[in-house]
Design a protein around this nucleic acid. Sequence first.
DNA 1: AGTGAATCTTGACCGATTCAAAATCATTCG
DNA 2: CGAATGATTTTGAATCGGTCAAGATTCACT
Lengths: 150, 150
Amino acid sequence: MALDSDPTELLREAALRVTRPRLAVLTAVHSHPHADTDAIIRATREELPDVSHQAVYDVLRALTDAGLLRRIQPAGSVARYEARVGDNHHHVVCRSCGAIEDVDCAVGAAPCLHPSDQHGFAVDEAEVVYWGLCPACSAASPEPATTSRG
Amino acid sequence: MALDSDPTELLREAALRVTRPRLAVLTAVHSHPHADTDAIIRATREELPDVSHQAVYDVLRALTDAGLLRRIQPAGSVARYEARVGDNHHHVVCRSCGAIEDVDCAVGAAPCLHPSDQHGFAVDEAEVVYWGLCPACSAASPEPATTSRG
DNA sequence: AGTGAATCTTGACCGATTCAAAATCATTCG
DNA sequence: CGAATGATTTTGAATCGGTCAAGATTCACT
């Protein structure tokens, strides 16, 4: 997770060709964490106006497969990407506006990685999504106490 | 959840009109946990051959909103539904074939519901998805030890 | 049985993502 | 340095899950 300032080197280390679209996408995701594909396309085009949407899709997949990006997709949302990889962090998602924030593991390095019954599955990752309302939305909706799930 | 055997009563309790499509969908989801919409449509049509796909979509939403069904959507998957509601259980998902199994909470009623930093969010639910390989798929892919995330 | 309101049918529509073929570019080797 | 090679990008269209809308039908309650 080093060398944030040198995307070229990141690509080289991942044995990926260093192309203009890849650099632009990598930079765009770095500066727009949790952005969806459309936002990434727009951000990428600020630096490289003529990239095709297809190129961005391809690059996002290549970088995700290479471990340079992480793809997240809360239920009901389109795919989003972030450049923070290699650690085990989770996300809080606002049910109302869809805002996403990072959340570090509550307990040590990998909490919840041991389900009570794995049904024989070889589990290698526990993904946690905290659902709720962001400060802005919870201030906007004066909902008393009707919702309570845990 | 009580009264699994009386879908009519379940609908009544939820203040929903008792219609043929709703009964058929409810029954279909009960007997096909974690099925996607298309599978539910086909299962529903075994009992009620002429339901439209639109009706099934509408019913699924109505029943989900009423709390009779729960919608789950692991990243990269289409929407799936299950009739087990009201408890806090999670899922293991096979990365290879997409198989889903239920997982009870590892610790008490609501583990992981307290992120280290909520960023001011009013969190009301922690959703956990365990990713891995199901028994069949892990037997089929003799992958040594290349993947390790936690 | 009558009535209003909710539900279902039909068919078009949408946005996110993928597919496919041809053109272009980054890297390697002479 | 310049050409060869194969990956990458462009272009354009297709697919797929899901939604929208209008009219016909069905249901719950009186």
